[in-house]
Simulated assay, not measured.
Amino acid sequence: MTEPQADATGPAIAEAAPELFEGKAESGWTRMAMLAVVAGAYIAFGSIAYLVAQAGPPGGATQLLSGLAFSVGLMLTMVTGAELFTGNTMFVLAVDRHRLTAGRMLTAWVVVWFGNLIGSVVIAVLFVTAGGGSGVEGLVGDSAVKVATSKVTKDTLALIASGVLANMLVCLAVWMAMAAKSVPSKIIAVIGPVTVFVAAGFEHSIANQSLLAMGWLLQDGGAITGGAIARNLALSTFGNILGGMAVAMMLGRAQLDE
Rank of each mutant, 00 (worst) to 15 (best):
L76F: 12
T86E: 05
I48Y: 01
I48F: 06
V38R: 03
H98W: 10
A41S: 14
G56C: 10
S27H: 08
E15T: 12
Q5N: 14
E26R: 15
M90Y: 04
L68R: 09
G73K: 05
A55I: 09
V52K: 07
W29P: 06
V72E: 03
I118N: 05
A69E: 02
A33E: 00
L84H: 03
A55H: 07
L20S: 11
L93H: 02
G67Q: 06
G119E: 05
A14F: 02
V112G: 02
F21G: 03
A49N: 11
L106P: 00
V37T: 04
L106S: 12
R97T: 10
G115Q: 05
A108M: 09
I48E: 03
Y42A: 07
T9C: 09
Y50S: 08
P11T: 11
F114R: 09
G87H: 02
F70T: 03
W113V: 03
E22F: 06
E83L: 04
L68F: 14
A8N: 10
M78Q: 11
G115Y: 02
V72R: 04
G10T: 11
A49T: 10
V125L: 15
S120H: 08
A8Q: 09
P57A: 15
F91E: 01
G119M: 05
E19H: 13
D96N: 15
Q5C: 05
T80E: 01
A44V: 02
V52S: 09
D7N: 14
F70M: 10
R97K: 15
I48S: 03
Q63P: 00
D7E: 14
G119H: 04
